[in-house]
Simulated assay, not measured.
Amino acid sequence: MYQVIGATKSRAFRVIWMLNEIGVPFEHIAAAPRSEDARQYNPSGKIPALVDGDAVLTDSVAIMTYLGDKHGALTASAGTVERAKQDAMTLWLIDEFDAILWSAAKHSFVLPEEHRVPAVKDTLKFEFERSAAQLSERLEGPFLMGDHLTIPDILACHCLNWAIGAKFPRTDDKLFAYGKSLRDRAAFQATSAM
């Protein structure tokens, strides 16, 4: 059985949601970032981590990709054009959504106060709005990669929720409805209840 290390109010939510989607059992260790519990699995204290037997994997996207490949779920097959398109979308979301939100978090509460530049958050909100509009234009079906849920959907929804919590501007109605449809899924609800 897998162990997932990390509080659900972190990127560990993505991993737990994916495991709930694919119906794979796991044990959840709700460790806070940089806590002693987290450092047992990742010396940097970063979360999430996934324990699979003797292996400890880190980084939410790497973990989700591993789980998708291992279980043949929520991902296109490696070595296919579909997978290359999925990976391109995943990396775009990391660059244009996740990185922006993480920068805002760092300048809000992560960095030591003397190193925070609160004024940068206005620029980050502008960047996020621009990226959200691009994502909305790319959304042609019920999911980012077509007619079924994939890793990029979990990543996008998590970032959209993060943006709401960080008081970023509301997305357009199309992207808002997309996020709501994902939040209505049973696996998302089960993860939220943890």
Rank of each mutant, 00 (worst) to 15 (best):
S108W: 12
M145K: 02
V117I: 13
I16N: 06
K9T: 14
R170F: 05
N161G: 14
G45Y: 00
V4T: 05
S181A: 11
A177K: 12
D37Q: 15
E114L: 11
T150W: 03
A190D: 06
V4S: 02
T90P: 04
T123F: 08
E27S: 14
A104E: 08
H148E: 15
I47K: 02
W17V: 00
K167N: 10
T65D: 14
A156F: 04
D54I: 08
P48S: 02
N42C: 05
N42W: 01
G141H: 11
I154W: 00
A7D: 12
A163V: 03
S60N: 03
A7Y: 09
K121D: 13
S35T: 01
E96H: 15
D59P: 05
C159W: 08
K121C: 11
M194Y: 13
F176K: 09
R138Q: 15
K125Q: 12
S181D: 00
H107Y: 04
S192A: 15
T80Q: 07
S44A: 15
L57A: 05
E96L: 09
W92D: 11
P43E: 10
F109A: 14
N161R: 12
V81D: 15
D172A: 06
R130T: 14
L93A: 10
L19K: 05
W17E: 01
L175T: 02
G141D: 03
G68Y: 02
I94V: 15
S103H: 13
V120C: 07
L19A: 11
S103L: 13
L19D: 08
A132S: 07
W92Y: 15
A73E: 03
G6S: 05
C157N: 13
D122I: 10
S60I: 01
A190W: 02
I151A: 01
Y41S: 06
D69K: 07
P169N: 02
N20E: 15
Q189P: 05
A166N: 05
S35Q: 04
K174S: 09
S192P: 04
R34I: 10
R116S: 12
V110W: 02
K70A: 14
E96M: 13
A12F: 03
E82F: 08
S44K: 08
D98C: 07
I47M: 04
L67N: 02
K46V: 02
R183K: 10
E36G: 09
L182H: 00
T191K: 00
A55I: 06
V24L: 11
E127C: 12
R130L: 10
T123H: 09
A55M: 14
G146E: 07
R170G: 07
T80F: 04
T80I: 08
G45N: 03
R183P: 05
I47D: 05
A78D: 09
L111C: 10
V61W: 03
A104P: 02
P112Y: 12
K174N: 09
P48M: 00
W92V: 11
T191F: 00
P33K: 04
K70Y: 06
V117M: 13
F26H: 07
E127A: 13
K106C: 14
S103Q: 14
I47Y: 00
D122Y: 09
I16F: 08
A30N: 10
S10D: 10
G146C: 02
V51P: 04
D37A: 15
V110R: 06
L149S: 06
N20R: 12
H148A: 15
W102G: 13
